[in-house]
């Protein structure tokens, strides 16, 4: 096996990951999506949210038409005359930002709570895990919907709602992992030295709980993007001033029935590509990081 020659753990890990071509493809596509989102202002012919740059004459042009700007709208234009391609890249910025920000914050909150529960045990553990279990028995989309309804529209509100709806997955995962790790000898050895509890927690227990956490984090970023898109599509997510891919799809929905499919469908395809590519990477990570499948 080629992986045997590699020395560093990172190289080993990559070699194993790269055995699945589909996963590598997913990673490449996701990286391209991130790059496209970051460099959107330089890659797009138009800033879709600069009202002055829009012409109503350009409204609802089918894909490939050359508009008043003198360049072709390869993916068509929407009802306000926005270039759909430009709108997608700018929307991708918002969608990816929301997904990654919510995923990272939920990871932080969930890991802290899960580790604390496993470490302190007793009543704290019972209370925390009881809340987590209760929350997990409700679908995340419903929780997010309720939270957005009470917090109101806006980027910060949507991210908060997503974090509150998703931290429980991290808490449950890290709690389970920490419980089984805690019984192992290296933790006993570390407590016997004795090292400070905080050091054992952060330097010994946490690193060994990382593999399942990484998998959950990948999946939850994809979920966060999907839930945000759903909320925005339903009209309770991001406001029109900060459009995500979900907002774009919602805007085009009314025109779809009259056959102007491109306003909704192309942002939809972009959303799909992002979510599927993250899930492909996550699926492979799950296999690579699963100790039960270790060869």
């Amino acid at each position: 096996m080629s992986a045997a020659k590699a020395e560093r753990p990172a190289a080993l890990f990559w070699a194993e990951f790269a055995e699945s071509r589909v996963a590598v493809f997913g990673l490449v596509v996701f990286a391209l999506a991130v790059l496209a989102a970051v460099f959107a202002p330089w890659l797009t012919p138009q800033n879709p949210y600069d009202q002055a740059g829009l012409a109503l004459m350009d409204a609802r042009l089918p894909p490939g038409t050359v508009g008043t700007g003198g360049y072709a709208h390869w993916l068509g234009t929407d009802a306000a005359g926005r270039d759909v391609f430009s709108a997608i890249l700018w929307g991708l910025r918002t969608s990816l930002f929301v997904g990654v920000a919510a995923g990272a914050a939920a990871l932080l909150l969930g890991t802290t709570l899960g580790l604390a529960a496993a470490f302190f045990g007793g009543r704290i553990e019972m209370l925390l895990m009881r809340i987590v279990d209760l929350q997990l028995s409700f679908p995340a989309i419903l929780l997010a919907l309720v939270l957005v309804a009470s917090l109101g529209q806006g980027l910060a509100q949507v991210v908060t709602a997503l974090v509150a709806a998703q931290y429980a997955y991290f808490a449950r995962t890290v709690h389970g992992a920490a419980l089984s790790e805690r019984r192992k000898e290296y933790i006993e050895a570390a407590s016997g030295i004795p090292l400070k509890p905080a050091r054992i927690l952060l330097r010994h227990l946490l690193p060994n709980c990382l593999p399942p956490l990484i998998v959950v984090a990948t999946v939850q970023v994809a979920n966060a993007i999907a839930i945000e898109a759903t909320l925005s599509f339903l009209g309770v997510g991001l406001p029109v001033t900060e459009p995500s891919l979900g907002t774009l799809i919602a805007n085009g929905f009314q025109f779809m029935l009259s056959g102007r499919y491109w306003i909704s469908v192309y942002p939809g395809i972009a959303l799909l590509i992002v979510i599927v590519s993250i899930n492909l990477v996550g699926d492979r990570l799950r296999d690579v990081l699963n100790p039960r499948l270790r060869r």
Partner: peptide
């Protein structure tokens, strides 16, 4: 992977 609303569309 597909969001429900996307499939509906």
């Amino acid at each position: 992977s597909l969001p429900t609303f996307w499939v509906g569309l």
